[in-house]
Computed example of a mutant assay.
Amino acid sequence: MTYQGVLSKMQTELGNPIQYYLVFEDSFLNVNQLLNKEIEINFAGYQCLNCNKKKKIFRQGFCYDCFYSSPAVGDWIMRPELSTAHLGIEDRDLEYESKVQLQPHVVYLAVASEIKVGVTRKTQVPTRWIDQGAVQAIAVVEVPNRYLAGITEVALKDHYTDKTNWRKMLQQNNQIFDLIAEKAKIESLIPAEVKEYFYAQKNDLYELQYPVLSYPAKVNSLNLDKTPSYAGKLTGIKGQYLLFEDGTVFNIRGSEGYIVTINV
């Protein structure tokens, strides 16, 4: 069968293992069903996820113009501590920014390649952790806006990384951490205005299972601009990556806005 459409990040469903779906305008594909099968991916063009024009993608699925104008990719997205909607101050569009920033956010610890600290909207739990390829995760605080989550993350970055080593995440990693014990150390590290939101008694530990038949010994990232056609046997899905038998890995999230044809 042949599927064609604009790539956006795979939709996921929590399960054992996690279920992954590629959703196009007129069809969808349960990617788990392709495990251990040969698939072919062909690059067919670009379409900006914001303006829908057939323009070259600049970053995060957006063309150059949209990346520097849309409120959906303001600096506060990557740096929550820059959020200003709680002060009534606009970055690009106060209505949009208020809708996103002024809602419950969670600061968490997660293990993908090592222990990292991160921020997500409460509505994105556990989706955010799945997208990062985390095998364990635990919420540390739940705060009423993005700014408070951001300053908490900044304080904790002195003690934990805020980045995922994607190569290490995609390889077999049997290292286990005690996130409940780690969380117990954090209360004294968070800003004073956030301490009332600390999850002192709540220790809901998420353990996430991914549909991976085998992990690559080495990884080679597929870039559709350089390699517009690729075929291989799918052996796993983790984070937003497809893993292939020959060690090739394809970052769906990193290829948002690319038009592809997938032959199954």
Rank of each mutant, 00 (worst) to 15 (best):
H105F: 08
L7G: 13
P71M: 11
K168E: 14
R253K: 14
K202L: 11
V100D: 09
Q47L: 01
A217F: 03
N36A: 13
L87D: 10
Y3I: 02
E40D: 03
E256L: 03
P17V: 02
N16L: 09
Y3P: 03
D178P: 02
W76N: 03
N50P: 00
Q209Y: 14
V154F: 11
L34W: 02
K168Q: 12
W166C: 01
S113R: 11
E90M: 09
M1D: 09
S98C: 13
F28G: 04
F28C: 07
H159L: 09
W129H: 12
S221D: 01
N52Q: 07
W166N: 00
I77S: 12
F28L: 09
K37F: 01
L243F: 12
Q60Y: 10
L102I: 07
D225P: 00
I130R: 03
T84W: 01
P17H: 00
G118M: 06
L170F: 13
F43Q: 06
K99A: 14
A149E: 10
W166G: 04
C66D: 12
P191N: 14
A134M: 00
I138T: 05
A181C: 04
T2M: 13
T123H: 08
S229K: 14
D225T: 07
I115K: 02
Q201V: 06
L22K: 01
E81I: 03
G239W: 03
L35I: 06
S83F: 02
G45D: 01
V249Q: 10
D225Y: 10
N145E: 10
C66N: 07
M1W: 02
S27F: 06
A192F: 11
P17N: 01
V264T: 05
Q101N: 14
L14A: 11
V106T: 15
I39C: 08
Q240K: 11
R79N: 11
Y68L: 10
K185N: 08
E196F: 08
A149S: 07
D65T: 15
S98D: 07
L49S: 12
D26V: 01
R59C: 15
G74I: 08
F24M: 03
A184P: 04
S8F: 08
Y147L: 11
Y108A: 13
L170Q: 05
A139P: 14
R92N: 05
A110Q: 05
D158Q: 15
G15A: 09
C48K: 08
F43V: 04
G45V: 06
G5W: 03
I89F: 11
V111L: 00
H86P: 07
P17C: 04
Q19N: 04
E193K: 14
E182H: 15
P144K: 08
W76Y: 07
P126S: 13
P211V: 06
A231P: 01
Q33S: 09
C66P: 12
C66F: 04
V106H: 14
A72Q: 15
W166Y: 11
